[in-house]
């Protein structure tokens, strides 16, 4: 056969140690920008923030900055507003997750089987997810406003409210405003993830079950639910953390009011930092929240381990 050289032999031979180094270093070059950004903008501030928890840092007071030990935590222990926000966090998180999940699951089941127009229906019902959170908050605040919104009038007509008033200014009902906005905005998240899980269930398992004599309900409880269980567990648990941290809607809609009735821990932290400019106290509250969430995550990991072992 012909041996006309197609190209010059490259002069690589003397670079062998170089290649060894390159091979070892290569992955780190690819991840370096990410690691750098995360470290500088998230980890360093996190550590600094934790140190603030033990210092007196108020932006408007130039003489602040001293080390005060556990002073903030002592204040926190007797801070009724903080304890109230803890309780509100539980209500807010639990109600939001349960409602989002329940509505999301039903929606996913409705969308699972093909029907004419499914594509367009799917796009429409998932649209709220794309609405920026601040806008969802404002939008719902307006809907609850009796001046421009229909909801108070409708609720009064249905007898849910005695008069068409804004529930956001009623201390006993205000929390349901942000929850409603959150449910509206968050249903698509659950619907999308659950729909994906539903569609990954092999169709022939359903066929086999029908041949074995299972009706629609038995197929749902014996096949669909067990297949969905891992997805449900992981999304619900992770989503819980996310929603507990999610302060935007509350800040936009009620700003924690009326009379701190809708303040959750994360919006309380933001209020301390942003309105009172008390960075030290805000960081102390943040530290407590972080510890609680870490404890929660740890429980999740243990549960997951236990589930995997089964």
């Amino acid at each position: 056969m012909t041996t006309v050289p197609l190209y010059e032999e490259s002069a690589h031979r003397k670079h062998t140690p170089w290649r060894r180094i390159m091979l070892a270093v290569e992955p780190y070059i690819y991840i370096a920008p990410s690691v750098l950004l995360i470290t500088m903008i998230m980890l360093v501030p996190l550590v600094i923030g934790l140190s603030y928890a033990f210092r007196d840092i108020q932006l408007i007071n130039p003489f602040s900055g001293g080390f005060i030990g556990l002073e903030h935590f002592r204040t926190l222990w007797t801070d009724a507003a903080f304890w109230h926000s803890m309780k509100n966090t539980l209500v807010w998180t639990f109600a939001s997750v349960v409602l989002q999940f329940a509505f999301g699951l039903v929606l996913a089941l409705l969308l699972n089987n093909p029907f004419p127009g499914r594509g367009i229906v799917q796009a429409l019902v998932f649209l709220p997810w794309a609405v920026p959170t601040f806008l969802s908050g404002l939008n719902w605040a307006w809907l609850f406003n009796p001046v421009v919104g229909p909801l108070p009038h409708w609720m009064a007509a249905l007898g849910i409210l005695s008069a068409p008033e804004n529930i956001l200014s009623d201390p006993s009902l205000a929390m349901w405003g942000p929850i409603a906005a959150n449910v509206w905005w968050g249903i698509p998240f659950f619907a999308i993830t659950l729909l994906a899980a539903l569609q990954s269930i092999p169709q022939d398992i359903y066929e086999a079950a029908s041949i074995d004599g299972a009706g629609p309900w038995r197929r749902f409880t014996d096949i669909t639910l067990p297949f969905l269980a891992p997805t449900i567990a992981i999304t619900v648990l992770l989503r819980t953390v996310w929603i507990a941290n999610f302060a935007d809607l509350i800040i936009v809609m009620t700003n924690g009011g009326p009379a701190d009735q809708t303040q959750i821990v994360s919006s309380y932290i933001f209020t301390q930092a942003f309105r009172r400019l008390d960075f030290g106290y805000a960081s102390a509250v943040a530290m407590v929240l972080l510890i609680l969430l870490l404890a929660y995550s740890f429980v999740i990991i243990l549960l997951r381990q236990a589930m995997l072992k089964r």
Binding site: I38, G49, S266, L293
Partner: peptide, 19 residues
């Protein structure tokens, strides 16, 4: 990276402002 998805970003508000 997973942890950064979980922790309350709001706690970085004050230190980032200071930095």
């Amino acid at each position: 990276m997973l942890v950064t998805q979980m922790f309350p970003l709001v706690m970085l508000v004050a230190p980032i402002f200071k930095l």
